[in-house]
Nucleic acid binder design. Structure first.
Lengths: 184, 184
DNA sequence: ACCTGAACACCGTTCAAGT
DNA sequence: ACCTGAACACCGTTCAAGT
């Protein structure tokens, strides 16, 4: 537990720099070359800490998962309130996110199968948490699930990311939305 | 109007190749280098037809707009039926799209301001068409607008793309969804 | 009017050699 | 254990020179 004034860099320094670059300019801003210059080190040394650029992006994804999913859920639970309040607070937290990482991560996931799977798992984790809150607030379980799903997708759509679902699922979504849209 | 057996290539040949590459592998698959090899021509000649790679991607975006927005709307109108039928058919058409281009275009738009604006205009065009159908089917105008918006976003979210909206708008969306989720 | 070929820049990746 | 420096590959972009 001492001040990190090492002359040699650890992997964390690379992830810090990559995370910041990602937030500022998306996947394409995460360049080993530029990060190395910023860290005042040669790019060759990067490969001591990481297998390749993909491994670095994977580390950024993991950090994002911790802070924006597990961390956010824990924080929301700790803040208390009844289920209805918790859900509203969660949605407001979601709406307040500037989406920079949400967009960037999904843009990357659209071109990397492993990342796509990780993001899909994270989406499922979030949806099931929302569904649990709605259910606890009195909405029947499977209705809560359907609405949590549609609600989450609409939130995602407000940034527009990239997690493919299958055709049948989407057709079912559309039928549901169609009825919602046409009922007076 | 003759068979295009020119020895010299027109811009269309590049756009055709780029569109196909984009559909198969997203933005990062659109490489002047590789397209040139596929077209059996040097990459230098590309710059006679286009200012740069961005201009080529812009042409892909325009073609996508024509086929997936203007073309789709016209086709749906031509197919007839009452407003309610037209809306359902439209939603089914949407749900059937594999989203390859939808995802790729938005991944690119997340890193290119001009593309982002074009995509935003296209989204608005689509939403207003959906709202018009819902309204014609008997839903009051501003309710139809709100639902068309949420519905469209949910569809987008099912692929997860990248079109930032502002915080206030998203908070309003969330309040609306919250009520929808909690009403029995 | 359209294309070639060579050149340069940017950057990912490898690796032998250094400390 | 961690870093350097040189090398190579890939690819965007420019441009003088060809047809």
């Amino acid at each position: 537990m001492e001040v990190s004034s090492q002359s040699r860099l650890g992997p964390d320094a690379w992830v810090d720099a990559a995370y910041a670059a990602f937030e500022a300019g998306g996947v394409s801003a995460v360049r080993i070359d530029r990060l190395a210059k910023a860290l005042k080190i040669t790019r060759g040394s990067f490969y001591w800490h990481f297998k390749d650029r993909r491994a670095l992006l994977q580390a950024v994804l993991d950090r994002w998962d911790q802070s924006k999913t597990e961390g956010a859920i824990t924080a929301n639970e700790d803040a208390g309130g009844d289920p209805s309040d918790r859900l509203l607070r969660l949605l407001h937290t979601c709406a307040s996110d500037d989406g920079k990482l949400e967009i960037g991560i999904r843009a990357w996931a659209s071109e990397d199968e492993d990342a796509r799977q990780t993001v899909e798992r994270i989406d499922e984790r979030r949806i099931s948490y929302m569904a649990r809150l709605a259910n606890a607030a009195g909405v029947p379980e499977h209705v809560a699930s359907a609405r949590a799903r549609v609600g989450y997708l609409a939130w995602l759509g407000s940034y527009s990311g990239a997690v493919p679902t299958d055709v049948d699922q989407r057709i079912a979504d559309m039928d549901c939305l169609w009825r919602m849209m046409l009922e007076t």
